[in-house]
Amino acid sequence: MRTIRTAPSRDRPATYSMRPAPGELPVATWRLDHSWESTGTFEEHAHDFPGLAYFQTTGGLLRTGRRSWPIEAGDLFVVAPGDVMGHFHAGDLAHAQGWGVFFTADVLGPDVPGAHLAWRTHPLLFPFVRGGAIGALRMRVPEAERTEWTARIQALHDELTHRQDGYREAVAAHLTLLLIAVSRLAADIVGDLRENHEQLLAEVFEVIEQRYPQPLSLRDVAAAVNISPGHLTSTVRRKTGRTVQEWITERRMVQARRLLAATELPIGEIGRQVGFPDAGYFARTFGKVHGTSPAQWRRAGAEPTTRTTRPDREAPPSG
């Protein structure tokens, strides 16, 4: 898989974009182990596409942002577009054993790159939606599931390598199953943030998760976490690239999309259930975020969710 490097600017490192050859699927897998010793060092950089780094064994070091993570068995690093990866040094992965998986959104289907779907509205991509400032998100695969994870990525790698009849459909299926597993691990966004030593962000998202259906402002969140509104705004924006109010709106939009796709509730009632007592204000906010009205979203069937009268609870976007 070929990548294109964009030179660093004053405030951004070099950025790499995936450029598949004609007819090539925009998915790449490679082993993360001692074979990387031969590559020497690698500059601090970011990708404009998402990826995963999964390790079966303890050993080695992964550098993300300004952190160096000693690798432990079952570690899964979710790399969002824009996340900064640190300088790679020869020998960092000499004692590691794992896999890297990188891809672009269009491999999941023709609707994904659409104007109002993109990254932050696809149900299997929400673990990758964060500001790039906190670096890759570290999660832990339970011990009982690690053999299955290794087999799943190996199967994906084999399909990409051998390209037998039907491999394109097989790659999409294996990647979808992998992303479903990631999204299930990422259901506890607050726990993931605490695992990554982001205690303040964890508290902020916990407040948003508990109170987003009610009137909720920056001042309310600041009071709940015992910090001034100004300091909270600057800290959250620096760490995630968004303001507290934008995250409140995003959480409400996540649930609004789910209710629009999974229920027949009137649009005004959906607005009330996600914290917008005024139906007109809900419609304007939804339109500003998605570029389409709630009614048009519902008609388009934007999220492929089976309609029910009682929708499942959806996790908030990670911070």
Rank of each mutant, 00 (worst) to 15 (best):
P113G: 05
V221G: 01
V84Y: 08
T235L: 10
I248Y: 06
A73W: 08
P123G: 10
A144W: 13
G291I: 10
A21C: 03
G100W: 01
R12Q: 09
I71Q: 05
A187M: 10
V101C: 11
G40A: 06
G230Q: 09
H95A: 09
T243N: 02
D83I: 12
W69D: 05
W247T: 00
T249I: 13
T29M: 10
S217I: 01
F77T: 00
G65V: 04
L76Y: 05
G291Q: 09
L201S: 11
A7R: 13
V107K: 10
Q97R: 11
A46K: 13
V274A: 11
A136C: 02
I189W: 07
I71G: 06
P26R: 07
H45G: 01
K288E: 13
E269S: 13
V101K: 12
R237S: 00
V101P: 09
R211W: 05
H197E: 15
Q210S: 11
R194F: 13
Y54N: 11
G131L: 05
P213E: 03
H157V: 00
T6S: 12
Q296G: 01
V225P: 02
T243D: 04
T104M: 14
D312L: 05
G135A: 05
S68H: 11
Q56K: 03
R63S: 12
R251H: 10
R168S: 13
A105T: 00
G287Y: 06
M85D: 05
L124N: 02
G23L: 13
L178F: 12
R238F: 09
T308A: 01
E314H: 13
W30R: 15
G86Y: 05
A90Y: 01
L93P: 02
N196M: 04
V129W: 08
Q245E: 12
V190T: 14
G74M: 08
W119N: 01
P277H: 15
F205C: 01
F205I: 00
G230T: 05
L218K: 07
L232Q: 02
P22V: 13
T240G: 04
I267K: 11
L265S: 06
H89K: 11
F88A: 10
T305A: 12
A14V: 07
R168Q: 15
R211G: 01
L177N: 14
V79P: 05
A186D: 10
A279L: 07
G268E: 14
R184N: 09
L193Y: 12
R211I: 00
F286Y: 00
L117D: 07
Y212H: 08
R67P: 02
N196K: 04
A224F: 04
I71K: 07
T64I: 09
G114A: 15
R272Y: 02
I270P: 04
G60F: 07
T308Q: 03
R238C: 03
T15S: 15
L125Y: 06
G59W: 10
R242H: 15
R168M: 12
F276Q: 09
R211S: 06
P316E: 11
G91W: 13
V141N: 09
R194K: 15
A261I: 03
P110L: 04
T309R: 11
